[in-house]
Write a protein that binds this DNA or RNA. Structure first.
Ligand SMILES: [Mn+2]
Ligand SMILES: [Mn+2]
Ligand SMILES: [Mn+2]
Ligand SMILES: [Mn+2]
Lengths: 221, 221
DNA sequence: CGCGGTATTTTGACTAGTCAAAATATAATT
DNA sequence: AATTATATTTTGACTAGTCAAAATACCGCG
């Protein structure tokens, strides 16, 4: 079995390469995994040895198909566990990520299958992120329309929260901007850097432009 | 935080000392933890250093109060998780121990509290073992009456399955001898070493005398 | 008492991860 | 083109756990 360290490395790489055929740098990984760059270099060489990723010296890494499958399995566990914690155990939306970070390494395939059944095979987690299926296919990375680049005064629906930081999630929670919420953008003020929108049950919410880019939406009929 | 290795050592000691003020030998621990005796000696010295247990050289170990509290916390997680897996996720009764062995180290206090609420604060796990409460008190080790030493032809109720081995649990499952089941002992045959009992909905079941000693019962009015 | 058998402890070595700090390669500036 | 800044890699050292095998202590027994 892959250790939880290996699982964390592979998942971190997956999250930073999926979509774009990017290569991830040592520095980015060191930052993400909260270790020193030299540690990443060492670890990455070991993982390349095991055929889980490709490493071009002084360039970066990219997952092999074997590594990608393994990472997708971990991501599936992470997101299903998050969904379970929120929906079944009624845990706070903004604290489940941390919990899932540990549980993703302890939940077996057997337990995961039961959780998946129990939840009725959900396709997205509480943040709106897609849950990979058992075979490792992820629902297509839908075009990323956010509050920043969407049409004004059109009925919208929050699809996904891109920033996972607890503080931002807390704000989203408070203002009711969670995935599924209805809203429309009233106006953008490039000068002041503020965007105003009307959230369905909540009322008017103002947020900074960079923050607006963290909320993905889809137009609703 | 205590590592999962430390948690496993302390829990193993607790399970072999609770009740009797026993001291546990290195050999027994090595067997239980599936490591070589020299490893236990090394580890035990480190744990004694941290004040989690007392170690008399060439004699054995006993938990300190700090160690006992820590071990009780792990045991509580283990048994609540087992209960959750069986009751909520409908997992097979004979496979949850193995799962709980891993999850007990990954479930936080926060998640555990939610599980406890969700289940309505159960006091025994699916095997009939008592679940320590939040403050670390365990329901008194009730007198151990088993099928071996109970009265004949009296209405009984299965209280606890003492042997946790998958094979035995499988047998118990099959014959309906699970905790809560009603039964009475029809006769014991010391000569053949077989005991016959009548299980409430199931019918007559025969089991060996050593096996009979693994099923704790309580008389029912 | 002395001897053999068993359990325990020591010793030396190994793996997985990690860090600090020095060495090196690459990219960006003057 | 030479110099500087930045990112990466190396090196040496450390921690937690573990095993194999040798050394040691303790037990009961003749
Ligand atoms: Mn998450
Ligand atoms: Mn993780
Ligand atoms: Mn168990
Ligand atoms: Mn365990």
């Amino acid at each position: 079995m892959a250790t939880s360290t290996v699982e964390n490395y592979l998942k971190a790489i997956l999250l930073r390469t999926e979509g774009s055929d990017h290569i991830v740098s040592m520095g980015v990984l060191a930052e993400a995994l909260d270790v020193v760059p030299g540690t990443v270099t060492t670890m990455v060489k070991a993982l390349a040895e095991q055929g889980l990723l490709d490493h071009q010296s002084r360039q970066g890494v990219r997952l092999t198909e074997a590594g990608r499958q393994l990472a997708l399995g971990v991501l599936r566990k992470h997101r299903l566990v998050e969904t379970f914690l929120v929906q079944t155990l009624k845990m706070d939306w903004s604290e489940v990520h941390e919990e899932a970070e540990a549980l993703e390494h302890a939940v077996s395939e057997r337990v995961l299958a039961q959780i998946d059944d129990f939840l009725g095979h959900p396709t997205t987690d509480p943040h709106g992120d897609p849950i990979p299926d058992v075979n490792g296919s992820v629902a297509g990375g839908a075009a990323s329309v956010t509050l920043l680049n969407c049409a004004l005064n059109q009925p919208l629906c929050v699809a996904r929260i891109i920033d996972q930081s607890p503080a931002f999630l807390e704000f989203v929670q408070q203002t009711g901007l969670k995935p599924g919420a209805r809203l429309q953008v009233v106006r953008r003020e490039p000068a002041s850097g503020v965007l105003h929108c009307e959230v369905r049950p909540g009322g008017e919410v103002a947020l900074g432009l960079p923050e607006a880019g963290k909320i993905a939406v889809r137009s609703v009929s």
